[in-house]
Design a protein around this nucleic acid. Structure first.
Lengths: 109, 109
DNA sequence: CCGGATCCCCGCGGATACTG
DNA sequence: CAGTATCCGCGGGGATCCGG
């Protein structure tokens, strides 16, 4: 097996998920955010999905989840130190995606 | 809508597909390859899936597909000029994926 | 040699309602 | 406020067989 050297799939396994990139974008931009703040930033996501995507990112050590034991509940999310290593990856993908959008528009004309 | 500026999903839409990264890796490494050669390099993929993934990559202008009208058939695949713009993206993802593999191993210990 | 056509399974993601 | 619990549709991906 030589082709097991393709580690692109490892990166994909972290990033794939309908809302993960946008969640990471918000956390990178704004630092720490509460659950309800994230929800407000993404009106179309359901609570279930937001919870699920956050849990998966937490499981991979990409984000921190801090629960404040109080009433009403308060939970804050932020990019972990390890998660910050994803920054260049997201940057490159975002940049390529932008040019790709252009490429597709030119294709139509 | 400010968050429509997240173009990471555009890149993902091209790369997501169980066999796409590995297919691209082979084509980047070896240049032009026939269908049967790709199949041989990926013993576990079915013909149907190989065909499908290649068609999708072709649809996005990432790869070239050249058919030689002869018997027996001969079809060659290669990275398109536009597809080469993906190189840095794949590089960064591959690199991050490698360190991530390490990260997971340390986690177990 | 290079596919297309069919059938099937499974997990992602959405809708909705309920709780401490 | 920040989640569970349940139900369900859809599409990705595999197995298998057929065709030029």
């Amino acid at each position: 097996m030589e082709t097991e050297l393709c580690k692109v799939d490892e990166a994909l396994s972290i990033l794939v998920g309908k809302w993960k990139p946008i969640i990471l974008l918000h956390l990178f931009n704004r630092g720490t955010l509460r659950f309800s703040e994230l929800k407000r930033l993404m009106p179309d996501i359901t609570q279930k999905m937001l919870t699920k995507q956050l849990r998966e990112l937490e499981e991979e050590d990409i984000i921190n989840r801090v629960v404040y034991p109080q009433v009403p509940p308060k939970v804050e999310y932020s990019i972990s130190d390890y998660g910050r290593s994803l920054q260049p990856v997201l940057d490159v993908m975002h940049e390529w995606g932008s040019t790709h959008t252009q490429h597709m528009q030119e294709k139509k004309s």
